[in-house]
Nucleic acid binder design. Structure first.
Lengths: 217, 217
DNA sequence: TAGATTGTTAATCGATTAACAATC
DNA sequence: TAGATTGTTAATCGATTAACAATC
C-alpha cells in the first residue's frame, strides 16, 4: 500500500478498472490476466500491471488476478467501503438529476441535505429530501458531518458558497460550476465542466469533418 | 493553422483558455501577456505560448495577445462560430438538465429533438421541445441534420442506440452512459462518466484525510 | 532606443511501453 | 515439469518547462 506517488492519470483510471471488474463479475468471470483485461479495456497489459502495482501486488504469477478480490480491493482504495455523507448545493435541474441518481448510494454516497437560495425551491422535496434555505448552511454543518459538497449553482455564487463551505470544514468539493474555485491546499476538488467537455467534442467533431472532406474529395 | 498534431491535453485546455478570455473581456482587459495569463490560470507561461502556437501565432512580440482577437480565434478553433444541431437521447433528469441549460445556445449548440422510449415521457415538453418516441429516431434523422447526439440513458440501451445513431450517420456523441461505446474510427466521442468522477474525488478525499490524520497526530 | 514578450528550440520531466527474471 | 503471467526494471515516448534569439 505504498501510495506515496500515485499519478493523477492512475487515479482517473482506477474507477474504470472498477467498472470493468464489476462487469466481469456480473458475467461470472472469476479470474483474468492483465493481457485479457487489456484486450477488453483497450489499454496495454503493461499499463494495467503498472497501475495496479501502485497499490500492491494483487496478482499471482502464472494465474493473473482474481476478479472478485481485485474488485473489492479497488473499491476499498476508492473509499467505496464506507459511507460518504454528501450535501448538495443547488436544487436546479442538474442538482435534481444528481440527487435522483440512485446508483451512487450503492457505492456509499449518501445525499443527506440539499440547499438552495430560491424561495420557490425551498421546502420542495427532491428524492425525498427537503430543500433547505442556503442561509442555514452553517447551522446545518455545525451539527452534521459532511464529507463531500456537490456544487451545482451559477459560478458567481459558487465561489462565495465554496468559501463558506471551506470555513465550515468541508474538505472535498464536487464542482459543476463553470469556474475554478480558489481553495486551500488541504481541500480537494473534482471539477465537472460540462460546457468545456461539449466544446472539446465540438473541436473533435470539426477536425473529423475536415478529415472526411479531405479524404472524400 | 498547422494542426497535424494537437495533443489531447491541448484540446482539453482550449475551452479553459476560452473561459478565461471571456472573463478578461468582461473585465474590459484588452491585452494580456502569457505571463499575466499564466498567473491567473495557474499554469506556466511557457505552456500557454506552446499551446496557442499549435494553431498559429496569435501574439505579438513585446505586446502579448489581444484578448478580443484571441477569444474569437479560439472560438473558431472550437467550432463555436457555427450552429451545431444536437439531438438528445434520454429525457430523464440528466437529459432535462442538459436541455434546460440555456448557455449552450450562446455557443451555437442547439438541441433540436429529444427522444425517449418511456411512454410517460413521450409527448412531454422539455424546454419547449416535445419528447419523441425513440422508435422514430431513424425517420427523424433521414430528414433532419444532426451534428451531435447526446446520450443520457442507461448503459445497456446506450450501446444499442449508439449503433443506431452511427448507422444513421451521426459522427459525434456526447456520452453520459456509464459504459464505453464501441464506435467506428470516424465517430468521435466525449465521455462524461459522472460516477467515475465522483469515485476519483472519493479517492482524493480519502488520501487527504489520511494525510491530515498523519500530520495531525 | 530600451524594455517587453513572443515563437521556437533544447532540456527536463513524467508517463507509457517493452522486456524479462522470478515464480506459481 | 512446462507454460503462463506477474512484478519490476529499463527503454521509449510524449508532454511540460526553460531558455533565448528575434522583433515589435
Amino acid at each position: 500500500m505504498n501510495d506515496i506517488s500515485v499519478s493523477k492519470e492512475v487515479i482517473r483510471r482506477l474507477p474504470r478498472y472498477y467498472r470493468y471488474l464489476e462487469e466481469l463479475k456480473g458475467e461470472g468471470v472469476t479470474r483474468i490476466s492483465s493481457r485479457e483485461l487489456s484486450d477488453r479495456m483497450r489499454v496495454t497489459d503493461s499499463q494495467i500491471r503498472q497501475d495496479l502495482n501502485c497499490f500492491g501486488g494483487f496478482g499471482r504469477t502464472g494465474y493473473g488476478y482474481n476478479v472478485e478480490e481485485l474488485y473489492e480491493e479497488i473499491g476499498k482504495i476508492l473509499g467505496l467501503d464506507r459511507i460518504k455523507h454528501i450535501i448538495l448545493i443547488g436544487a436546479g435541474h442538474l442538482g435534481q438529476a444528481l440527487a435522483n441518481y440512485t446508483n451512487y448510494r450503492r457505492r456509499g454516497f449518501c445525499i443527506e441535505a440539499i440547499f438552495d437560495r430560491d424561495p420557490e425551491k425551498i421546502g420542495m422535496k427532491v428524492y425525498g429530501i427537503e430543500v433547505q434555505d442556503i442561509a442555514g448552511l452553517e447551522a446545518y454543518l455545525s451539527t452534521h458531518e459532511a464529507d463531500i459538497a456537490t456544487i451545482t449553482i451559477p459560478k458567481e455564487e459558487a465561489r462565495i458558497v465554496a468559501k463558506r463551505l471551506v470555513s465550515c470544514g468541508i474538505k472535498a468539493i464536487w464542482n459543476f460550476a463553470h469556474t475554478d474555485l480558489e481553495l486551500p491546499e488541504d481541500v480537494v476538488v473534482e471539477n465537472v465542466h460540462l460546457s468545456e467537455s461539449l466544446m472539446s467534442l465540438s473541436y473533435k467533431a470539426k477536425e473529423q469533418r475536415k478529415k472526411r472532406e479531405e479524404s472524400g474529395q
